[in-house]
Design a protein around this nucleic acid. Structure first.
Lengths: 342, 342
DNA sequence: CATAAATGCTAAAACGTTTTACTAGTTTTA
DNA sequence: TAAAACTAGTAAAACGTTTTAGCATTTATG
């Protein structure tokens, strides 16, 4: 038979003390509240014996804290986000927090909905990789005094705690790397978005080709079309068209993935001729033939930094004013075979 | 200024009705409880106006339901689990449930800890990819009348609701496929575990080589050593040793990943000679040179089936007896270049 | 020796819901 | 026309905690 978990009340009855006393003891305030050693011992022993665990829902209702954080990403099925998620989970658990993950599909409506739902659920903090159009919502969230840390991207003229990488510099170097290796016509394939990290990467590319006196060649694909025939068509056109592209820099992992497929479809040998650099590293890029040069984001560091900031905010507890915490981490170019001039 | 969210009590005061009435109306019991049209309208309008949202924590405390499910996997950073997670998340959200993901690292102690923590948090159901030694804990969990569905693996002589694939058959066919393609010495690399899905895969392999009158050659690596020099050493030995291995069947994705690296290290050309088949597909296997033959698990279907069962259990609500629901889905062999005899 | 302070505890309110049991008035039934 | 049944609600308990305010005793202080 399923038997009810003991509550603080049951313990009180069994030990003939008040629930107040028990609560104090359980929360380590026994000494402070001058509860005698014997009573403390008695309570602790009994709690141990019946394996009492406080009901966290009741605690949440009373204290307004849930010990739950939310990590909102584009797609938890995507390696980049999943890896960070794993790191965040680990750190959170060590501190007694749980993490709810959710995917916004880069969609503003969905982001809004998710923020609303979790706000209602009294989560203690938000770690958000925001879609482009939810600046207002983020602002409101922050106004309601709940800890919010943005990752990967941010909003211009909205002061937020955030952890990003040096996108401009990294993209600039990556393009430079292609140029240094003798490529004369590096193209840039990216998604059509106003997200700042993508704009920065594009700027990095443009400045690098301009500095080298080369011509810039950018293909911007709408997010939705990437997997579609239309998107594939446009990539194919760029690669086989009349302009003499000799190398490509991809702004993000899923573009690379799709494009590598297309490149293989066009001609299995093409990949040996084309210079390739991609944003976001992947175990398989190392294995691939040829191995793929990548800009590796410091996932571990990003997760740690995000949580460091989050815990600072949680500690401050909306009481004291905290200075803005904004970290810019460094992504590292990992040169491999795909960017060597053949 | 941060202002308190309105509670049901505030509404009651504003409209001069009782909180009971409001609760009934909000829960769609207005008609049933004979609340007049006017009052219903009045309440609904006001609720809309002040954008009232019930406090879910309070609801949980009162009803004992949290509308939160847990999906426990080995490692949420692993593609296989992350993809299923995404599918589960999607279905859950549609039904108003949230999903907490957690990684047990294939570790019993950690699994236990996680189960305990979430049980305390009153989650409504568990979707679990269990580590090998937590049979007892799963049993207890089920006894406490909370919905539990296992995925990917199960326990012998413990009747659980579960969704698995036809591991034996799939492994058998995969090995057969190598043999059919002319490989005479297929090896099997797997992890050293008592997990049933791995044992089934091993059986599938053994039976296939035996049926063909070939010799079986199995390398079992402890889970912890896979990324370590020791593990790499043993894989290297198998591949370069005196026994004339001409092909390998990998039992799981992370083994393949590590091994492909090793193969590349041994000799970049080796991969073109070696026959390779792996369990678990990956976007990059299609792209790889040569493309890698894989046994693809039906992720979408697995997620859907898991949730179908979970919702059945949630609906039954521990009241009515539900028949055991056990699904065996079919993994599909996707032949690619790596298993063609050269 | 009277008062003040410290000691060791407890009663009860509060968090925001759901739900059971009830009520006062109106309508129907026999 | 008295009793039964219905209508349109409401009061209050309960879920399991935390926390404020307070209450007897005992000990210290002047």
């Amino acid at each position: 038979m399923k038997q009810k978990r003991p509550s603080i009340k049951d313990i009180a009855k069994a030990l003939n003390v008040s629930i107040t006393t028990i609560s104090f003891v359980l929360n380590g305030k026994g000494e402070e509240r001058k509860i005698s050693k014997e009573v403390i011992k008695k309570i602790e022993d009994y709690v141990e014996e019946v394996n009492y665990r406080p009901n966290q829902v009741a605690q949440s209702l009373r204290t307004g804290k849930s010990k739950i954080l939310v990590f909102m990403v584009e797609d938890i099925g995507n390696r980049f986000f999943a890896k960070i998620a794993r790191i965040i989970e680990e750190i959170a658990y060590q501190k007694g927090y749980k993490v709810l993950f959710c995917s916004n599909e880069n969609n503003d409506k969905r982001s809004r909905e998710l923020i609303r739902v979790f706000h209602e659920r009294q989560v203690d903090g938000f770690l958000i990789i925001p879609s482009a159009g939810i600046k207002k919502d983020i602002e409101n969230l922050i106004k309601s005094d709940i800890p919010v840390v943005l990752a990967d991207r941010y909003f211009e003229d909205l002061a937020t705690h955030q952890v990003v990488i040096n996108n401009y510099e990294a993209a600039n170097k990556a393009t430079q790397h292609l140029i240094d290796n003798g490529f004369k016509h590096p193209a840039f394939i990216t998604i059509d978005t106003q997200q700042i990290q993508m704009l920065d990467r594009a700027r990095g590319y443009r400045d690098a080709v301009a500095a080298a006196g080369l011509q810039s060649n950018i293909l911007e694909l709408p997010f939705e079309t990437i997997q579609s025939p239309e998107g594939k068509q446009r990539i194919t056109e760029l690669l086989t068209g009349s302009n003499e592209i000799d190398s490509v820099f991809f702004s993000t992992n899923y573009l690379t993935q799709t494009s590598l497929e297309i490149i293989k479809d066009i001609d299995p040998k093409l990949i040996y001729d084309l210079g390739i650099v991609t944003f976001d590293d992947n175990e398989f890029f190392k294995i691939n033939n040829p191995s793929i040069t990548a800009v590796a984001q410091p996932l571990q560091e990003m997760g740690e930094e995000l949580m460091r900031i989050m815990f600072k905010l949680l500690k401050a507890n909306g009481k004291e004013e905290v200075p803005l915490m904004q970290s810019v981490l460094h992504a590292e170019l990992i040169p491999r075979d795909s960017s060597k001039k053949k």
